[in-house]
Computed example of a mutant assay.
Amino acid sequence: MNNDRAKRWLEPKTWAEAAYDPQVRAVVFQSLLVIVLLIAATEIVLNTAANLKKQNITSGFEFLSRTAGFDVSQSLIPYSSKSSYAGALLVGLTNTLLVAALGIVIATVLGFAIGIARLSPNWLASKLALSYVELVRNVPLLLQLLVWYVAVLRAFPPPAEALGLPLGAHLDKRGLHLPQLTFEHGGGALLLSILGAIAAAWFLTRLARQDRDGAWKHSSFIAAAWALVGIVPFLALLYAAAYVSVAYPTLGRFNFEGGLSIEPEFLALLIGLSTYTAAFISEIVRAGLLGVPRGQREAAAALGLTRRQALRLVILPQAMRIITPPLTNQYLNLTKNSSLAVAIGYPDLVSVFSGTVLNQTGQAVEVILITMAVYLAISLATALFMNRFNARTAWAER
């Protein structure tokens, strides 16, 4: 059929025949559209360059190598005021990725729990879940962030009157102060052993689930495989003679010193993003569970499975095919909504790069293009991962 279509395309035609040929018209119209888009893009670029030249603004990305000259309150990588603007970009990017990754995990767990509770036969649990969803998803996210930051976290007492928490942690208006583990020797070997144990446990669990004869599917074998995550690092700890110490936060003259301090801006943003997105994820989960035919529940009950077993082994695996596509949209929304961090002073990508760097350099076009490209790359990577997961889920369903 493709050869016949190619032959018809190559046959000589009169102008009248070509005008009424759908394939010819499609090619002509698409070519005209491409030409118009190219002309429009060229005009935009030329006008932008002319306006920048008229205002004596240099264009290009050389500014990334210049010294930033400002500090950032929270940084996961080494950074100081002597670092470059490229370093400031990396700081904002890592802060955005941190809050997005943690927010996705918390929102997923909370959303699945609330979505399952919506369908619970327990009247109180179902109504509480419904109230949570209707309250949280109908209040603007920006307002919720301000409530968590100003009305909740900033209302805690000063460091001198901090609230004592279990395990030596403290909570005050300047953040959450936690104990921190420090490795004096052998920390690298311990980290490698943990990663290796996790990889081995995952590989053995995958073998157990793919074995058709059932020899690997015994639950005790899977439990023993994941026990490696605790046994192997412990043996590595003994072999490397690593010395592990715990640094507890202690009250200094103005604030707590030592340990791990989490700033209130990060806590407010993480809590706000997680709780807001969880409300939408719960409705997605509820719709996915209701999308599984009722006969599957009846078949599970006929096999003698409890409600929890039926949900975990029968209903939820089938519902994931319905849940995964809209769940991907919520992950993307959470990542992009993290840009609202500028309202509460958290140093994310928009606040650091599109805010401070833009104001200092005046390179508006370049800064905005880089920011858009970074968010686009994060979104595409997230969508690619979720699409692969969705493909595996759909294959398992068949």
Results as ranks from 00 to 15, higher is better:
325 P>F: 01
54 K>H: 07
258 G>T: 01
355 G>M: 06
87 G>P: 07
330 Q>D: 00
316 L>Q: 04
51 N>L: 02
47 N>A: 15
96 T>Q: 07
285 V>H: 03
225 A>L: 01
260 L>F: 02
70 F>M: 09
258 G>Y: 01
254 F>R: 14
385 F>Y: 14
66 R>W: 10
326 P>T: 01
187 G>Y: 02
238 L>S: 10
98 L>D: 10
180 Q>G: 01
391 A>K: 09
113 A>M: 06
156 F>V: 13
365 V>E: 07
22 P>Y: 02
297 R>Q: 09
3 N>E: 11
289 L>I: 09
29 F>T: 12
200 A>P: 06
220 S>I: 14
271 I>S: 10
163 L>R: 14
392 R>I: 04
72 V>L: 07
374 V>L: 14
375 Y>E: 00
355 G>A: 08
268 A>G: 13
226 W>M: 09
278 A>V: 02
333 N>S: 13
24 V>S: 12
190 L>P: 12
380 L>M: 14
170 H>S: 13
357 V>P: 00
109 V>K: 00
377 A>H: 10
336 K>G: 04
62 E>W: 14
78 P>A: 06
310 A>Q: 07
192 L>G: 10
306 T>W: 03
180 Q>N: 03
155 A>M: 09
275 T>Y: 08
285 V>P: 06
237 L>A: 15
52 L>Y: 03
112 F>C: 09
130 L>D: 10
8 R>I: 08
52 L>G: 02
307 R>F: 05
134 E>W: 11
369 L>Q: 08
90 L>H: 08
188 G>F: 15
334 L>S: 10
378 I>E: 10
265 E>V: 10
161 E>G: 09
67 T>H: 12
139 V>W: 06
357 V>Q: 02
253 R>H: 06
141 L>V: 06
360 Q>R: 10
277 T>A: 13
185 H>L: 11
262 I>P: 02
262 I>A: 04
60 G>K: 12
219 S>P: 10
99 V>S: 03
94 T>L: 15
